[in-house]
Amino acid sequence: MKIMTCPVNGPRNISEFQWLGPVHAEDEARDETLVERLFLAPNPMGVLREWWRHTPSNTVFIAERNLISDEILRTWLKGSDADKPTSAA
């Protein structure tokens, strides 16, 4: 059984979650790029930030997932400290 941690409700079975798509930069939401984003989505390998929803509580959050190993690295709510970019060490 695969477990995902909801930032509000804690660890839950993955069947309680709905994938909502990759996180895009706010400046990408322009009309001229909308069709490309919807129908010509890239398939990157590596770590991707995605929107997820915990369906029983309707909590929408961001998860960072390794697409190669399908491992969920971390989850957080939009606007929290985890949402801020980290500096390179």
Rank of each mutant, 00 (worst) to 15 (best):
H54E: 04
G46M: 05
W51V: 00
E36S: 10
W52I: 12
M45I: 13
E36M: 09
F39R: 04
R49C: 09
R37I: 02
A41H: 02
L40N: 12
F61L: 06
R49N: 14
R37P: 00
L67E: 10
L67N: 12
F61D: 06
E50M: 07
E32N: 05
T59V: 15
R30S: 07
R53Y: 07
P56A: 03
A63T: 15
N58H: 11
T33D: 09
T59W: 09
L48G: 12
W52N: 13
L67V: 11
W51R: 00
R65G: 01
V60M: 13
E64Q: 09
A41F: 01
R65W: 02
N43R: 12
E36A: 11
R30G: 05
R53F: 05
P44S: 04
L67D: 05
E50W: 07
T33H: 08
T59M: 08
V60A: 13
N58Y: 10
I62C: 12
P42D: 03
N43A: 12
N58M: 09
F39N: 03
N58V: 11
S57L: 00
E50D: 06
H54Y: 07
R30A: 07
W52L: 13
R30E: 06
R37Q: 01
R49D: 12
L67S: 09
E36W: 12
R37W: 00
A63S: 15
R30I: 11
L48M: 14
E32P: 03
S57K: 01
F61V: 11
P42H: 01
T55M: 07
N43S: 14
P44H: 03
P56T: 11
N58I: 11
F61R: 08
T55C: 07
N43K: 14
A63F: 15
F61T: 12
F61C: 05
N43Q: 13
A41E: 03
L40M: 09
R65Q: 02
T59G: 10
V60C: 13
E36F: 08
V47K: 14
R53A: 06
P44T: 10
T33I: 10
S57G: 02
T59L: 06
A63H: 15
L34K: 03
L38R: 01
R65Y: 02
W52C: 11
E64V: 14
A41S: 04
R53C: 08
P44C: 03
S57R: 00
E64L: 04
A63V: 15
T55L: 11
L40A: 07
D31M: 14
R65M: 01
L34S: 02
E36G: 06
R37S: 00
S57Y: 02
L34Y: 02
I62L: 08
E50G: 05
R49E: 14
R37F: 00
F61M: 08
L34D: 02
